[in-house]
Structure formats: structure tokens, C-alpha cells
Design a protein around this nucleic acid. Structure first.
Lengths: 122, 122
DNA sequence: CCAAAGCCTGACCTACATGTTAACGTTAGA
DNA sequence: TCTAACGTTAACATGTAGGTCAGGCTTTGG
């Protein structure tokens, strides 16, 4: 599919799709006329990138992860084991924080809605 | 407590503590000599700010939320509920991906270590 | 009293996500 | 054929996290 549709489906801008590409996070094929042609797999990958960025990862970090996480190519994974270990720590810590956060947000949502309900039912 | 200890306990820099303050996310008392004096409550709050930032919230968003998240003041909470919902979506989506990824990382670690063990035992 | 170590403010610099705009090629419909 | 809508690249602009450094207090231990 073309850029416009891809961006719409991902709810990001075409600008950011190009940005991911320039940062080496995504490779997108071209049609004869030079237009980008996004596959469904591209969309899924881009969606993950979008979420990682929205959750505080830099393109640099994402790039490092991508190299080490690929199923094939045990090739260019320099010092990969340590990096992976570090990353695991980060991920686990983040998971815990996200859980906390999630709970807090949900609680708060409840409180707000109760508050609003209380007010509007006066 | 003083700035140095606060920063050490939070594992961030004094710079960032001051930054939070300047951004209006944190109010810290002063001693007679003008030094900041952090209470335990300040630490907890700063820790939360740190985690929010590390998880992709901007100071602007946190500020908006702070209004929404405070236990009192149901006052200036414009559109807060929707924002909270959006963030929840991101968080949940990412949680799922992190789980996936975590599994992949663990597998990959195993593979690498087996590989190394195989080599070193030759 | 002096030096070391802390604190303060303010300014400057970097990295990076993201928006916007200009200049230009392509495609499809009236 | 003309125009609108789409695509492309490249350049410039902005907002913000975060580092670092300078100049100048205060506190504390020898």
C-alpha cells in the first residue's frame, strides 16, 4: 500500500514513517515509479517502532535491539550477550513500572468518573 | 535531605531534580541558607516523575496529569480522562510486545550461551 | 583560617522527535 | 490536456531531556 494509507492505519505521519526508515529501523520496498510500497509486515514493524518510541525508547536503542533480536544472523551482534542482559533488566524494570502505572491510571480513572458522576447526579 | 543524597537515592542527576522543579512538577522547600531540602514525600513524587518521563511522558503531559492525578482539586482537569485512556492503550499494547520480546530475548540468550558452551568445550 | 566539598543560578550545547515548507515528479479523473 | 491528489527529497524550525561548566555562596573538618 502507499504512504498515505500506511500512515493513516498507523495513526502517525508519513514524516515519521520516513524517519524510521532513515534511522535504519525499517526497510520499505519501492514500486517502479519510486513510490514506497508498504507490506502488512512493514506495518506491523512500524507499529511496534511507534509504540516503542511512544514509550520512551530512542531510535538508537531500538536499532540496537533489532540487531540482537533477529532470529537469524548471529553475526553482527557484538557483545550481544551483555547487551541483551542489560536490555532484559530494562525491560523487566519497565514492565514493573508499567504495571504500577497501569494500576494507578485505572484507579484514577475510576475516581474521576465517580467524582463526575457524583457531581452530575447532584 | 540535601540534593546530593536525593539524587543518589533516585539515581538521577541533581540537574534533573532542578529541571522537574523548573517545569513546575515539584516544589521543594529550602533551608535558611537557600539549600533545597527534600522530604521523603518529595522523593516519592520525584521518583514517579522520573518513571513517567522514562516511560515517554513529557513534562507537559505530566503537568496536565498532575492536575488530574491529584487527590483533591477536581478543578482544572480539561480532557484529562481521554488522555489517560490513550496512554493506557499505548501501555497495554507495549506490555504485550514486551512480553513477546522478553521471551525472544530469553530464547536468544539460551541459544548464544549454548553456542559458546559448545565452542569452549571442544 | 584554609581547603574541600556541597549548594545555587544561569548559560550554553547536544540529541532527537516531529512539524513545515519548498521544489519537483507521477497518476488519475474531468 | 489540465488539475487535483499523491509521491519524493531536502532543508529549516521547534520543543524538550539532559549534560556540562562557570562564578559564587556555605559548611565542615583539620
Amino acid at each position: 500500500m502507499q504512504a498515505k494509507e500506511a500512515a493513516e492505519r498507523l495513526k502517525i505521519t508519513q514524516r515519521m514513517l520516513r524517519h524510521y526508515e532513515k534511522e535504519g529501523l525499517l526497510e520499505v520496498g519501492r514500486t517502479l515509479n519510486g513510490y514506497r510500497s508498504y507490506t502488512e509486515a512493514d506495518l506491523r514493524r512500524a507499529g511496534r517502532i511507534r509504540d516503542f518510541i511512544a514509550t520512551g525508547f530512542s531510535t538508537r536503542e531500538i536499532r540496537a535491539m533489532a540487531a540482537c533480536l533477529s532470529d537469524e544472523g548471529s553475526g553482527p551482534c557484538e557483545g550481544g550477550v551483555e547487551k541483551l542482559r542489560e536490555k532484559l533488566e530494562h525491560i523487566d524494570r519497565l514492565r514493573a513500572e508499567l504495571d504500577e502505572k497501569r494500576g494507578a491510571v485505572i484507579d484514577r480513572l475510576g475516581t474521576l468518573q465517580n467524582g463526575l458522576a457524583t457531581i452530575s447526579s447532584r
